[in-house]
Amino acid sequence: MSKHFITMTVNGRERSLHVDSTDSLLDVLRNRLDIKSVKDGCGTGDCGLCAVILNGRLVNSCIVLAAQCRGAQVTTLEGLLEDPQMKSLQGRFLKYNAAQCGFCTPAMLVAAKDILSRTVRPTEDDIKAGISGVLCRCTGYYPIIQAIQEASEGRSR
């Protein structure tokens, strides 16, 4: 088991720490950096609840080795709370009851932010594809899609 010293920027803050070779980025975020919005739903990259934005891309943090995150930029929901687009998404999620048990909600919001940052006017199909890697068992997805669609259509509603 090797140890690795990594420095990465998490939610805008530079963090340096020693990690074990077997630590996943999810382990480090939750257990070392106390970033709890990122969830462990399966541990094998099949549910998306651990999704974060890594170097500008949506990834499943549970199967990313922390040791491979040298110099990485990581963004989770905690790092987006002041983001106007995120606030708009959160408001719509509440309006449309898109968060029921809430366990997939952080991942859905991060995926939604990812969609909105890459496409100006995403279609319903774009949104469905954008969240296709995050599983939800409660909502049936419709309220989530509705919320993201409305958030993408501008702020004044």
Binding site: L77, Q90, F93, L94, N97, A99, T105, L109
Partner: peptide
Amino acid sequence: ESLARIDGLEKVLGKPVYTGD
């Protein structure tokens, strides 16, 4: 009335409210 659920805000804010958090 379709009022927003009472436990919605903490969920969209990603607050650490689940057991493992």
